Simulated scan of single mutants.
Amino acid sequence: MSLDAYRQARVFSETPRAVEYRLVSEITRDLVQARDTALRGGALMALLARNREMWLVFSAACEDDANGLPVALRAGIISLALWVDRHTSAVMRGHETVEPLIDVNRAVMAGLAGEGAAPSPSEARTAA
């Protein structure tokens, strides 16, 4: 089986939580690599923009009234997304580091991987 066929099969069999975990994991891995190599310039800006976009999508999913997550959890995710947006701007200006972004992403990964954890934003939407 070709690598592309394997990837396509994986996409069809993954749960929304697994897809979200994989996305956060990939972006976090890239942020760690950027930190470790002192990445600068356009490559860093593109990575930061990708992380920011992911958080904006999470926020939008939590703003949807059809989202089945508890209101307090949805509010917390929206609040984190706002913080990520502000902190990302500070990193882009050279006033902050990427380390706190890595920490927040790792905390989300732990929640997505946890046994008995709340459903992901995508799963909550489909359950409602």
Rank of each mutant, 00 (worst) to 15 (best):
Arg22Val: 04
Ala34Met: 06
Ala49Asp: 08
Phe12Met: 10
Asn67Lys: 11
Arg52Pro: 04
Ala110Met: 06
Val32Arg: 14
Leu101Pro: 00
Met45Cys: 07
Leu3Asn: 06
Pro70Asn: 03
Ala117Val: 12
Ser79Val: 11
Arg10Phe: 13
Val91Ile: 13
Met92Tyr: 11
Ile27Val: 06
Asp4Tyr: 10
Ser120Thr: 10
Ile27Gln: 05
Val91Ala: 00
Glu53His: 12
Ser13Ile: 14
Tyr6Asp: 05
Trp83Gln: 10
Leu69Cys: 00
Asp85Leu: 03
Leu23Trp: 12
Ala107Met: 01
Trp83Tyr: 11
Arg52Ser: 08
Ala43Ile: 06
Val57Ala: 06
Trp83Glu: 02
Val84Phe: 00
Val91Cys: 04
Thr126Arg: 15
Thr126Trp: 14
Ala81His: 02
Glu53Asn: 10
Leu73Ala: 14
Gly68Tyr: 04
Arg22Gly: 10
Leu39Met: 03
Arg35Trp: 05
Pro70Trp: 01
Leu80Met: 12
Arg86Ser: 14
Ser25Thr: 07
Leu31Glu: 00
His95Ala: 14
Phe12Thr: 15
Arg35Cys: 00
Val19Met: 10
Glu20Asn: 12
Leu39Phe: 03
Arg50Thr: 12
Ala60Arg: 15
Asn67Trp: 05
Tyr6His: 15
Ala124Phe: 09
Leu3Phe: 05
Val11Asn: 06
Asp4Glu: 05
Val71Ser: 11
Arg50Gln: 06
Arg29Gln: 14
Asn51Ala: 09
Glu123Phe: 02
Met92Ala: 13
Gly116Tyr: 06
Gly68Lys: 07
Gln33Ser: 13
Ala5Phe: 02
Asp103Leu: 14
Arg10Pro: 07
Phe58Ile: 13
Ala113His: 09
Ala9Asp: 05
Gln33Asn: 14
Asp36Tyr: 04
Leu73Asn: 08
Val104Phe: 07
Ala127Pro: 02
Glu123Tyr: 03
His95Leu: 13
Val24Ser: 03
Leu82Gly: 15
Gly111Val: 06
Pro16Ala: 08
Glu63Gln: 14
Val91Asp: 02
Ser59Tyr: 08
Ala18Leu: 07
Ala118Asp: 03
Ala46Tyr: 09
